[in-house]
Amino acid sequence: MPNRITIDIPASVELSPDILRDQETMRDAIAVVLYKQGRITPVQAREIMGLTRRQFEERLSSYGFAMMDEHDFDQELEAARLLSRKQ
C-alpha cells in the first residue's frame, strides 16, 4: 500500500474545482520540493512522479529549479548501484 499525505486547507482559502482535481500537479510539486531539500533522492522523486530521468530533468525547470548538479548525479549513480545489487 502506498504512503499517503493529507493536507488540510483552511475553509477560508477558496479553491476552484480545477485545483482540487489536479492532484497530479500537487504530487509532483511535493516530490520536487522534497528532492530539492535533500529529503529524497532523484530516483525517489522520479518514482513518485512516474517519470524517466529526462522527463524529471525537464519538469524541474517548470518548477523553477535548475537541472541536476554534479552532487545530484553522484546520488543518482549510487541509487542505481544499490538497485542493481538488490536485483
Rank of each mutant, 00 (worst) to 15 (best):
Leu34Asn: 06
Leu60Val: 11
Val33Ile: 09
Asp74Leu: 01
Leu60Cys: 13
Met49Glu: 04
Asp28Glu: 13
Asp74Ser: 10
Leu34Arg: 07
Glu70Gln: 14
Ala29Trp: 01
Gln37Pro: 00
Pro2Glu: 11
Ile40Ala: 04
Pro17Glu: 14
Ser84Pro: 00
Ser12Arg: 09
Gln55Ala: 13
Met1Asn: 08
Leu77Pro: 03
Asp22Ser: 14
Ser61Arg: 15
Arg46Tyr: 01
Gln55Val: 04
Arg27Ser: 10
Lys86Thr: 11
Val32Asn: 06
Gln23His: 06
Tyr63Cys: 12
Phe65Thr: 11
Thr41Glu: 08
Arg21Val: 15
Asp72Ile: 00
Tyr63Val: 13
Thr52Glu: 12
Met49Thr: 08
Met68Lys: 12
Leu60Thr: 14
Arg4Asn: 13
Asp69Lys: 08
Ile9Ala: 03
Met26Cys: 05
Met68Gly: 14
Ile9Thr: 07
Arg4Lys: 08
Tyr35Lys: 10
Gln44Glu: 15
Thr41Leu: 05
Glu70Val: 08
Gly64Leu: 06
Glu78Pro: 00
Ala31Tyr: 00
Leu83Lys: 01
Ile9Phe: 05
Ser61Trp: 07
Asp74Pro: 00
Asn3Thr: 11
Ala45Glu: 02
Val33Tyr: 02
Tyr63Gln: 14
Met26Gln: 15
Leu51Ile: 12
Phe56Met: 12
Ser62Phe: 08
Ser16Asp: 08
Arg59Gly: 02
Ala45Lys: 01
Gln23Pro: 00
Arg59Gln: 14
Leu82Cys: 02
Ile19Gly: 06
Thr6Leu: 12
Gly50Trp: 01
Ala79Gln: 02
Ser84Glu: 06
Arg81Gln: 15
Leu83Met: 03
Ser16Thr: 07
Ile9Asn: 10
Ser84Arg: 09
Thr41Arg: 04
Glu47Gln: 07
Arg53Leu: 11
Val33Ala: 12
Gly38Val: 06
Arg85Glu: 15
Ser16Pro: 10
Glu76Ala: 06
Thr41Ser: 15
Ala66Met: 11
Ala80Ser: 10
Leu83Trp: 00
Arg54Leu: 08
Arg85Leu: 09
Leu82Asp: 08
Asp22Met: 10
Tyr63Ser: 15
Arg81Cys: 05
Thr25Met: 08
Thr25Tyr: 04
Ala66Asn: 14
Val32Pro: 08
Tyr63Leu: 05
Asn3Arg: 02
Glu24Ser: 14
Leu34Lys: 12
Glu58Asp: 15
Gln23Val: 15
Gln87Ala: 09
Glu76Val: 00
Phe65Trp: 12
Glu14Met: 03
Val33Asn: 05
Phe73Arg: 11
Leu51Ala: 14
Leu60Asn: 12
